[in-house]
Every structure is written in structure tokens, then in C-alpha cells.
Design a protein around this nucleic acid. Structure first.
Lengths: 193, 193
DNA sequence: CGTCTATTTGAATGTACTCAAAAGCGGTGG
DNA sequence: CCACCGCTTTTGAGTACATTCAAATAGACG
């Protein structure tokens, strides 16, 4: 079946009929991304929510001094967008780039709304998705304000081993909120101990 | 009407019939809290999600060294719980305390599930609630990893002026992830400049 | 009034950043 | 296949940010 990956993701939380599968698939636009390509660029309207069929993506913000902060990584079977700007159809705060050749399945805002209207149980699906995302971010906040850099680094590589393989040290540093130089030093001290 | 505050909160996002209002109200348990009282204690199963009718609450974690980290504050018209432990019915990571005499309206986990089953549009309501919570936490992560302590403090007092009035400096420091001594110094420097 | 906690202040220490330079690594073109 | 380029990673010195500990002051509350 076409778009089997996203249907299987959906069926982790709700059960859907054959006719509903077809309906969902009819709304999806697949998009191939080359390494380094941006799906979303800071300042542009965020039109789509993206399901990662294959590859690796990174969402990050660049501040006025040019400093990058990584908000999230997404690999196979994850959803990624600039949620605030997607839902409010505002200029994006985030860039989203492909870290390697990737394939995403896109839903436009209006299509998601029509999906809620036509198949109400998708409210449930996205409720669960948002719930998990909230819990994840809240735990990350707790880590940020209560753990040392070394502890946060260790937790990151233990929690997301598949991501660690795909991204640079520099990007992990910008996810943890430290400089690459400092992360390098933390790792040296750790291996010395 | 009884529980008018929570009905009005719900009607910010979905419209509900009179009969549905009655149904919701029948599921609610109001609970009066005295200043200092805990609604939830770390290690106990988190049974309820709490809507704040009046007063101020704080959710915080205490680590093995006894250090407190504040996850969130909640005032009138906010929802608060340890979401992960509530949804999974696990021992709580968080304490939730009343910072002043407060009144909360509680929903038990099984009651929320029955609500989803009986009135599916509550899936939509909580989808929107979770969505907003996710966006808020993600923005807080971005602030944590990209801004200075002074910038985060200024943003906090500007974003949540009603909360600032109710909570101590020490609690704000534990929300920002710095020591009270350091926050005090930041404020002094700021007023000097 | 006295007690308890929060807040402020300061000194000493540790954590993290900046800047600069060297070393490592991957990709590209000749 | 090798040489070169650009970027990442490492290393180090100097500086700034943040913590710890201790003590003084100020506020809140019974």
C-alpha cells in the first residue's frame, strides 16, 4: 500500500477503516528532500506538517547574532513542523532542514482541518500525538533546569541512539544549549574518568 | 451554574449542549486546598487532572540532593497535573502544591476516558489543550537553550505578570533553573543599568 | 515579640563561553 | 588516487557567568 508508513503510525493509536485509509492518503503530498534542503525557512509561513518516511530532519532557530539552537530532530516515523506557526499560519520561527536525503509526507493546514471534520477520530490521534509531545518537552525542560551538561548529554545519547548516529556533535551541542567546544571538553573529561 | 468557570474554559474551544454541561459537571470533584497543601506528592500515583478555579498552584520536582525545580505554575483558568504519570497511572515525578488557599476541580483518569467515549468532541478540546501546552513548553526549551538568565527572567515577568505577584523570587529562580542568590544579583545589576 | 524563611551581599570556586589555532575528516575535482 | 578545500572537532588560554557557602538584613506569620 502506498504511504504504508504513515498509516502504520496512525494505527498505533487509532483504528481506521480501509475507506478512511484511502481518504487520508488522498490528502498526502510526498516530498523528496536532498541533504541540506530546507522544508521550512524562518520567516516564511509554515504550511505543512511533515511525517518522516525516511531520512533525518532537524528543526532549529537562528537568533539575531546568528547563533543556532536546535529544537528537535526527527527520524523515521516522527512528525515535525513549527507547530505554533503551522496552527496559526504565521511566519515560522524555525528552520527545518534535511540532514540527509529524506522523504516526508506532508499535510497542509486546511487538509488537517478537513480531516478533523470528516473523520473525527483524527482528533483523538492528534490529541495523543500532542500529549506525547507535551510530555516530552516538559521532561526536557526539567532536564534543562536540573541536570548538568554531562548528565543531559548522557541522557540524550541513551534516549536517542538512532539520532546520535545521524547528527554532528555541533548539532547535539546546539540541542543541549552549549557550545561545541564545551561539549567536546565534557566528553574528554568523561572518558578520562 | 455550578462549575461555571470550567464550563467557560471548555467553551473557549468547543461548544457544548446543556445536557453535556450537566454530564461534565457530574464527573467533577471540587477540592479545597489550604496554603501549603499538596494535591500530588512525588512517588504517589497521580489520579487526577486539576482545573484551577481559584488560587495558585506550583508543580515541582525534588531531585536526590533535595534541589527543587519548578516545572510550572497554574493560576485561575489553568489545568495542571503530572501529565505523564496521570496518563500512565504511574508514581508521580512531581509535587503539586497550593501556594495560597485554592479551589481545584478534579477529573479522575477513568472519568476523562469516559468523557472521551461519551462526548467525542472532548477529544478535540483536550487536543487543543495539549497542543497549546506543547507549543508553550517548546518555546520554553528554546528560551532555556538560547537566552541569558536575565533575558529569561524579563520574559517571564512580562509573560506572566499575574503569577509574579503570587510567587516568591526563590520559586521563580527554580523555574528559571538558577539559584535564588544568582537571580537576586541579576536583578540588582539590571536595576543598576 | 520572636521565629522562620526569603532576600541580599560578598568572597571563593567551578562551570561555560570566546577566541584562536591545530588536527581530523569527508567530499570534490583534477 | 591523490590533493585540496571546507567544515567539524579538539585543545588551550583568558574571561564571564553561575554556584556554594556564610553572614547580614528584611519580611511574613503566629
Amino acid at each position: 500500500m502506498e504511504f504504508a508508513s504513515i498509516l502504520s503510525n496512525i494505527q498505533k493509536h487509532i483504528s481506521i477503516l480501509e475507506v478512511e485509509k484511502n481518504h487520508v492518503c488522498s490528502l498526502i503530498t510526498p516530498r523528496k528532500l536532498s541533504k541540506g534542503e530546507l522544508v521550512l525557512e524562518q520567516g516564511r509561513i509554515c504550511n505543512t506538517i511533515n511525517f518522516v518516511e525516511s531520512g533525518t530532519l532537524r528543526a532549529f532557530h537562528i537568533n539575531k547574532d546568528g547563533k543556532e539552537s536546535t529544537i528537535m530532530f526527527a527520524i523515521m516515523d516522527w512528525w515535525i513542523t513549527d507547530m505554533y506557526c503551522f496552527l496559526n499560519q504565521r511566519p515560522a520561527l524555525l528552520n527545518i532542514e534535511a540532514l540527509e536525503d529524506s522523504m516526508v509526507l506532508q499535510l497542509k493546514f486546511a487538509q488537517l482541518e478537513s480531516l478533523y471534520r470528516d473523520i473525527p477520530k483524527f482528533e483523538r490521534f492528534f490529541r495523543i500525538l500532542m500529549q506525547n509531545a507535551y510530555i516530552r518537552e516538559q521532561l526536557r525542560v526539567l532536564n534543562n533546569i536540573s541536570l548538568t551538561t554531562e548528565e543531559r548529554y548522557l541522557e540524550f545519547i541513551q534516549k536517542y541512539p538512532q539520532i546520535v548516529q545521524k547528527v554532528s556533535q555541533k548539532q547535539i551541542a546546539s540541542y543541549l544549549g552549549v557550545t561545541p567546544e564545551f561539549l567536546s571538553m565534557v566528553k574528554r573529561k568523561k572518558s578520562a574518568s
